[in-house]
Design a protein around this nucleic acid. Structure first.
Lengths: 131, 131
DNA sequence: TATTTGCCTACTATGTCAATAGGTAAATAA
DNA sequence: TTATTTACCTATTGACATAGTAGGCAAATA
């Protein structure tokens, strides 16, 4: 289940794609257009900046700006930056030591298949496909 | 993210598929084979019984039994019975009033597409495919 | 009647989600 | 220089879900 963090992150990125490129857009404006609390968005854009998907500038005339063109972002990397992991089951999340039952687990192949399906979906989809 | 409830439910159903059909299998045996706490499994099989995927019988010689042949169960109905909903985003969960932004939401088509993708995956996959 | 099994209610510890609150730092314009 | 605007930082909170545990009652069989 994709949480509000991931969904809002995607909406922020889409919102920025629709604004004039090359200028910093204040978070306040994005929050108003998207009808999302600015305070909460601060948390979300922080992750996006950390992942180098956005850059921010303080002070008057500041705000946030895309680092690349919309067609150069995959939806997957945006969601991964905000959600942390897109794994569909805990056993397949990155940085988790392998389950001792993995060898005999009858369900693992199913989860791997699902994981690949959603991963391919998210990473083939571009931000520009959402405008 | 599929939780332990759904994952364990599937393992119980697979386990039963591998036992002699037509006889009741005690939950204690399933719990030992699957290395899952019997107490926790009680909660899980209760949902499966309620959804008519399993039938239970009390007393000596009792236990749980499949209601149909393994090829007649989809993985989707098993997961839905234990997880409650397989919706990938809150906005698409059953019984939720439509978001007021639905008409102009740029992300909704993406979530619908994802939801269809996973739904089709889960419901085309049969229990017999997991043995 | 004893034993085995399912079935029922209640409880709990931990963590995540979805925010809110209240500041500091940086940049610009008057 | 000063006021204003903006990002950026840490901390806190209430509600809920997750992943179980505990202890018993009811039913069926040997």
């Amino acid at each position: 289940m994709i949480s509000t963090k991931g969904r809002y992150a995607l909406r922020v990125m889409i919102d920025l794609s629709e604004q004039e490129s090359g200028v910093f857009i204040p978070l306040k404006d994005i929050a108003e257009r998207q009808e999302i609390s600015k305070k909460y968005l601060e948390i979300i854009v922080k992750d996006l900046v950390k992942a180098k998907l956005l850059k921010g500038s303080s002070g008057k005339g500041g705000g946030y700006m895309l680092c690349r063109k919309p067609e150069e972002y995959s939806v997957g990397e945006i969601l991964e930056a905000s959600e942390g992991s897109l794994a569909t089951v805990a056993c397949l999340a990155a940085g988790v030591e392998e389950c001792p039952r993995a060898g005999k687990c009858k369900t693992l192949p199913l989860w791997r298949e699902l994981d690949k399906l959603t991963h391919d979906f998210f990473f083939s989809k571009k931000l520009s496909d959402c405008i």
